[in-house]
Simulated assay, not measured.
Amino acid sequence: MKMRSALLLALLFLVTVSSCTRQVERLPTEHLKHVEVVLRTQESEYWRTVKMGAEVAAKEFDVTLDFRAPADEADVKGQVALLEQSVASKPNAILLAANDYKALSPAVEEAAKQHIPVVAIDSEVDTPQVRSFIGADHYAAGQQAAAQLIKWIGTTGQIAIVSNRLGDRNTELREQGLLDELAHYQGIQVLEKVYGSTNRELAVQLTDEVLKNHPGLSGIVALTENASLGAASAIQSRNLQEKVKIITFNSTPEELALMQEGVIQAAIVQNPFSIGYLGVKQAAEAANGHKLPERTKTEIKAIDLTNMFWSDNQKLLFPFIK
């Protein structure tokens, strides 16, 4: 079943991409510009798709790219060092997806002192020296996750939250949106919140403990890609997919296959390809002296079996941009 689902998704992707055409408008550049790209990590489907979008934009807007990223999103010090190296290389612009809201600020401010524009994608940085931010409204994404959970378990039930490390701004915003929305339902009890699932294996262990300690659990919300895959795996290994409903984040091929198999009920989906593409586009514009919008909000959408194959949702589920 899983192989058949994956094959169906792959075929749909090929058909969609082959039918997609776009007019290309190039920036007027006197010479090739260089953009340093510092990502949260490259060890996930989400960030590989961001990179894909960035590479497409680089070809269209005549810039060269160098990618830097720590192996683990939890390695904040490592990412700070990588950003400092990028600043020292004196590029024409920097594209940054920060692992920490505050820790990356000094290096961004140093870039500004050297007149190197910094564009932030996916996660914000606590400094006004960022020229532009491109990304989703993570608080609203948490609210959407709550709405999907209520849709599947009703207005009463015991739930758990599986999240990233403490201090990660994106997941904190998602969690706050989730909890604020769930506060409208007195019958919903949040029994446990577990953190530290920056890798899938740890998320499996954490979720398995939650399932063992709370046999009456009716729902889980997993706030990151690794948390989602790990939590879904733990539910499936205990054969609890009929009893415990799970709402996840992102749209890896494995998540979509698990959705078709009934393990995952819904996913809150961003458009990482578009985030990478727009990030490089704006970095190229900044490198050429153009004024940037302060914020560009990218789309989020709840995807389930009822709408995952709608044509309007293809750009969110597969890596291309109109």
Score class of each variant (00 low, 15 high):
M3D: 11
R4T: 13
A6Y: 06
L11C: 13
L14K: 13
L14G: 07
V17M: 13
C20H: 09
R26W: 02
R26S: 10
T29N: 12
E30C: 04
V35Q: 02
V37L: 01
V38R: 13
R40T: 11
E43Y: 04
E43P: 05
E45K: 03
W47K: 06
W47H: 08
T49A: 09
V50S: 11
K59N: 13
L65G: 14
D66K: 13
A71K: 07
D72S: 05
V76H: 02
G78E: 01
Q79F: 00
L82P: 08
L96Y: 05
A97N: 02
A98T: 03
N99T: 05
N99G: 11
D100V: 03
E110K: 15
A111E: 11
K113L: 14
I116M: 14
P117H: 13
V119W: 09
V119A: 07
E124S: 10
V125R: 11
T127Y: 08
V130A: 06
A136K: 11
A140C: 02
A145C: 01
A147Q: 08
A147T: 02
Q148G: 03
Q148K: 02
L149M: 05
I150G: 01
I150P: 08
I150E: 03
Q158G: 01
V162L: 00
S163V: 00
R169A: 03
N170Y: 00
T171P: 03
T171S: 03
L182T: 10
H184C: 02
Q186L: 08
Q189R: 11
L191V: 09
K193M: 06
Y195H: 13
T198M: 08
E201K: 00
A203Y: 06
A203I: 05
V204Q: 09
Q205I: 00
E209G: 14
V210M: 06
G216W: 10
G219I: 01
A222K: 09
L223M: 15
T224S: 15
S228D: 10
A231Q: 08
A232T: 15
S233Q: 09
A234T: 03
I235N: 09
Q236T: 07
Q236L: 06
N239V: 01
L240N: 09
F249D: 12
N250M: 06
N250V: 10
P253R: 12
G262V: 00
Q265A: 11
V269N: 14
G276W: 07
G279H: 13
V280H: 14
V280Q: 14
K281H: 14
A286P: 14
A286M: 08
N288P: 07
G289V: 01
K291I: 02
L292G: 02
F309K: 00
W310Q: 10
S311M: 04
Q314M: 06
P319S: 02
P319L: 04
F320G: 05
F320T: 04
F320M: 04
K322D: 11
